[in-house]
């Protein structure tokens, strides 16, 4: 099977290049994921750089651009991919080396969303109650693995990565706005209420299309806007 992989080593290269790799047929097994293939290709050339860890789509390390779509290598079946499989680093993020990008800005925007539960009421000695219905509001929000596929697929984030929080961070903002145990909803909405952090989303919906966990950041952003609107009425 043929691969075309983006290569760039800042110590030796001035420009990136696409390099051909071949995975011999006898190494291709049924049920194989793209990450399995990458690990074998790395045996051919140990300088091939990519991040990986859990191998089953929960740690979020191995996000990359696969035949033009952002996804996780470990849960992308090789059989579903057209050869040559073209692998590039996430678009819109600075490349450190090969498929490894600098996610510093992504983490910074995550932090700016204040993704932690705020509840300054006296702490009970047991759990704070939450009804199953209130808890269900968090489904589709809390499962995010911070792989970055969505933000790296978002044109608004490409253009204004410093000002627009991006879909991943906004999904987290929605997760805490929705949490019945959180008491900082007004603060959270006020924080987001400017021309950039939230409203640079133009509902392009690439985020929802690429999310490897099947989450819907676009809807979450819409929900924040609606909540904001209701508050202002």
């Amino acid at each position: 099977m043929e691969f075309s992989i983006y290569r760039f080593n800042p110590e030796t290269d001035t420009l990136p290049k696409m390099q051909r790799f071949t995975l011999p047929d006898d190494q291709v097994e049924p049920g194989m994921m793209l990450l399995d293939a990458l690990l074998l290709l790395k045996e051919q050339d140990d300088s091939l750089g990519f991040r990986r860890s859990c191998q089953h789509g929960v740690c979020g390390s191995d996000g990359m651009n696969i035949n033009g779509m952002n996804g996780l290598a470990c849960i992308t079946p090789l059989a579903d991919l057209e050869a040559p499989v073209t692998l590039r680093p996430f678009p819109g993020m600075p490349v450190i080396r090969d498929l490894i990008v600098d996610m510093g800005n992504f983490w910074e925007q995550y932090r700016r969303a204040e993704p932690w539960l705020i509840n300054d009421s006296p702490e009970p000695e047991v759990e704070r109650k939450q009804s199953p219905d209130d808890r269900e509001e968090l489904d589709g929000l809390y499962e995010c693995i911070l792989c970055g596929c969505c933000s790296a697929a978002c044109p608004s984030y490409w253009w204004n990565p410093d000002k627009f929080l991006g879909p991943a961070a906004l999904l987290q903002a929605a997760r805490f706005i929705q949490d019945s145990r959180d008491e900082a909803t007004d603060h959270r909405l006020a924080q987001l209420d400017d021309a950039w952090k939230l409203y640079r989303c133009h509902t392009i919906m690439n985020c929802t299309q690429v999310c490897p966990k099947g989450l819907n950041p676009s809807r979450a952003i819409g929900d924040i806007r609606r909540t904001m609107l209701k508050k202002s009425l």
């Binding site: 539960l117 047991v126 199953p132 145990r181 959180d182």
Partner: peptide, 20 residues
């Protein structure tokens, strides 16, 4: 330590009475 986790924001599944 589990109650602390709830206070830290862990989204535990819930029973009808709102408990973990």
């Amino acid at each position: 330590v589990v109650y602390e986790l709830d206070h830290f924001g862990v989204p535990f599944s819930r029973l009808d009475n709102g408990n973990i």
